[in-house]
């Protein structure tokens, strides 16, 4: 565990009353009617090679705007692995219909002033690792500005229009009805490209385990990355330590059982443990729309 030097303060007792207003969108996203059965498989992934690659790439281009971090390598590894496990890159629309997204858009959870928000890296499998890094840096700084603006606008609306506050619960509910019962609504929702797979990294805070919740129902999987650990091991009778990254894959139980999820996780592991071969190279264009019957 890497202890934090400074622990951010929590919301004070004086702000508790307005706290649920601020989290209104989350609250309706996390309601029990949005609950989806999700399980998680997890394993420790060795990071030695990824660490070497990261340092090497950062020596080549030390510009902070294109600095490569573990997060970017993970994003790239996930996008690559999803090409072979497309069921996890899908969503449910009707109660019995699955739609496989035609793009691999990796959403990342970013912490902005105590609120979790998301950035989306579109077509991450078609970008090089450097491009993923650059795009990610750009999107995070933009989101910091736009989210602040959005939150203050929401605050203003709540204060000036009390009726809006009273009726606000209905908006996510209407979305839910559209998504679940109208096929057209589902397709429109799909085309808005909200990110087809989620990667979240509470490990940067030092969190060693957590459970994610697949909410909103438009994603079938979420990769959680925990804090890097120094794991002791005995090699040839000698004590040594290796850097491992506990990585958990939360998946929607309705779409598959644990072994299928474990196979995706194994592929992510393969990508991450040999990133030079799988993540750093140039990108092949997948042949979408070929007449080979999708095989």
């Amino acid at each position: 565990m890497t202890p934090l030097k400074k622990i951010p303060p929590s919301i004070g007792a004086d702000r508790l009353a307005g706290w649920t207003d601020k989290r209104m969108l989350y609250i309706h996203g996390f309601q029990h009617y949005m609950w989806y059965p999700n399980c998680c498989v997890q394993k420790n992934i060795e990071l030695t090679e990824a660490d070497i690659l990261r340092k090497e790439m950062n020596r080549e281009d030390p510009d902070p705007g294109s600095r490569v971090t573990f997060n970017h390598i993970i994003n790239k590894a996930v996008a690559n692995a999803l090409r072979h496990h497309i069921l996890f890159n899908s969503k449910r629309t009707w109660r019995d219909t699955y739609l496989v997204y035609p793009h691999i858009d990796i959403a990342n959870v970013v912490d902005v002033e105590g609120m979790a928000t998301q950035i989306v890296i579109p077509d991450a499998d078609k970008l090089t690792l450097r491009q993923v890094a650059q795009l990610s840096h750009r999107l995070v700084s933009t989101r910091r500005v736009t989210l602040r603006h959005r939150m203050s606008r929401l605050d203003n609306i709540f204060q000036t229009l009390p009726l809006f506050n009273k009726l606000a619960w209905a908006f996510p509910f209407v979305n839910r009805v559209l998504r679940d019962y109208s096929h057209k609504g589902a397709i429109e929702h799909l085309e808005s490209r909200p990110g087809s797979f989620l990667v979240t990294n509470p490990g940067t805070l030092g969190v060693q385990d957590c459970k994610a919740m697949l909410f909103f129902g438009f994603r079938m999987g979420c990769l959680r990355v925990m804090a890097i650990e120094q794991k002791a091991q005995i090699v040839d009778g000698k004590l040594g330590f290796k850097k491992v990254l506990p990585t958990g894959l939360d998946y929607d139980q309705r779409i598959c059982d644990a072994p299928a999820a474990a196979r995706l996780l194994n592929e992510i592991q393969r990508n991450l443990e040999d990133p030079r071969r799988y993540c750093a190279g140039p990108v092949d264009e997948p042949e979408i729309g070929s007449d080979e019957g999708g095989a």
Binding site: I86, R254, E287
Partner: peptide, 25 residues
């Protein structure tokens, strides 16, 4: 870079649905 083993399914693919049908049951 690896070659593609499986391409993308189309939306509402019947064979995918058939596979999931059993799960739904």
């Amino acid at each position: 870079m690896r070659t593609f083993e499986i391409s993308f399914w189309d939306r509402d693919d019947p064979s995918l649905s058939a596979m999931l049908d059993e799960r739904v049951d």
